[in-house]
Simulated scan of single mutants.
Amino acid sequence: MTIADTRTAPRTGEPLLQIRGLQKRFPILGGLLRRPKGWVNAVDDLSLDIHRGEVVGLVGESGSGKTTAGRSILRLLEPSAGSIRFDGQEITGLSTGEMRAQRRRMQIVFQDPYASLDPRQRVRDVIGEALIIHGIGTPADRRDRIATLLEKVGLTADAMDRFPHEFSGGQRQRIGIARALAVEPDFIVADEPVSALDVSVQAQVVNLLRDLQQELGLAVLFIAHDLAVVRYISDRVAVMYLGRMMELAPSEALYERPRHPYTLALLSAAPTPDPDAPRQRILLEGDVPSPMNPPSGCVFRTRCPFALPACAEPSARTLREVAPGHHVSCIRDDIPAMA
């Protein structure tokens, strides 16, 4: 079976990760007593399944809630509401001690390879810290595993005795990937892992992630704003706007026939290999609404060129299936295809 075949093959069995109604709100504090004056709805009613060995891309503009969603799923941020089931176990109510056992199976690759590595630690300590926390192996075993991981991500074993500042950005991100893989997780959140890298290095790191994901059978939530990268690596893609999911579909289906106006606008703005190719650009008017006071109904309606009065109704928020595996939060069925 080819990579293209695996993208179109339906996922069967119980999902590794089941997210239902996930919400994350941040209080806006004011006054001398620092009491909440309002709330920022960073993630609003997110529901998503991720199967073993599947890569789900999560895209959207800055401020759409992508990173907050990823960190809430891992409980690096505590969700305000909703359910997160990992391998059949509800994890939102677990204590810190109970959650530690799950940490070994759920890891993250951070966006910034410069800020995410402690400059005072040698690479062996950066990667080996999780092994010590989880009591994995003897010191000799851990050193061997660190050497193996470094070679797996394209570095040499002697890199373990150096400090992060001695490496380039791409090499630091490889170290971050090795750190995430150290405890043999089942699920990884890759939080915009190439956005801080030079374009010439991005492809190398994405290819590394894809190869490791396939080799190890990892489930991955790949967060990014680069639509081309997401299409290349993802089996399915979820599109977020102002904390809500606008569209969810198999990767090729979403790129070939987007069904939500916001997805259509994102794709129309993405660069193409042929700059002279005819294309229809959808320009969005107005500013993104405040997450403190999002629009009623469809949160995209205030900027949508196809909006109807009914888009302000609560029913416009419903995520409905318009084709097998293709879900969209839009009441219209007549959104034009891309030219």
Rank of each mutant, 00 (worst) to 15 (best):
R162W: 02
E256F: 10
I28F: 14
A101R: 15
H260W: 09
I282H: 03
L48P: 03
L181H: 05
H51A: 15
G88K: 06
D125R: 11
E14R: 01
I132D: 04
L267C: 01
D276I: 05
P305V: 05
G325S: 07
V56Q: 00
Q204Y: 09
Q202F: 11
G70V: 04
R85P: 13
I177V: 10
L155K: 03
M160I: 01
G38D: 03
I84L: 14
P119D: 15
T263R: 08
T148Y: 13
F222I: 00
P294R: 08
S268H: 11
L149E: 02
A130N: 05
P139D: 10
I19N: 02
G30T: 01
T318M: 04
R11M: 09
E54G: 11
E247Y: 11
M160Y: 00
L197P: 02
L29K: 10
R320D: 15
R301F: 09
S296W: 04
R162F: 04
R236L: 06
P193M: 15
F110M: 01
T92I: 12
V237K: 03
H327Q: 11
R122C: 04
I335H: 10
Q23F: 10
E61H: 00
R25K: 08
P314G: 09
F300S: 06
V229L: 01
N207L: 08
A159M: 13
C304D: 12
S168H: 06
L267Y: 03
V189Y: 01
G135A: 10
A337R: 14
S268M: 12
Y255R: 05
S83N: 14
Q171F: 03
I233F: 02
L216N: 13
S234M: 01
E14N: 02
V123C: 07
V59F: 08
G286V: 06
G60A: 04
T272W: 13
P294F: 11
Y262I: 02
G63Q: 05
N293C: 11
R174L: 04
N41A: 14
M106N: 06
D45E: 07
Q102R: 10
R103A: 12
P324S: 14
S72K: 10
G38M: 04
D161E: 15
T148G: 14
H165V: 15
S47M: 12
K66F: 02
Q18M: 09
T148A: 15
A4N: 13
S64R: 03
R124D: 01
V288S: 11
S64M: 03
D125K: 11
A190Q: 05
C330M: 00
A9H: 11
L319G: 03
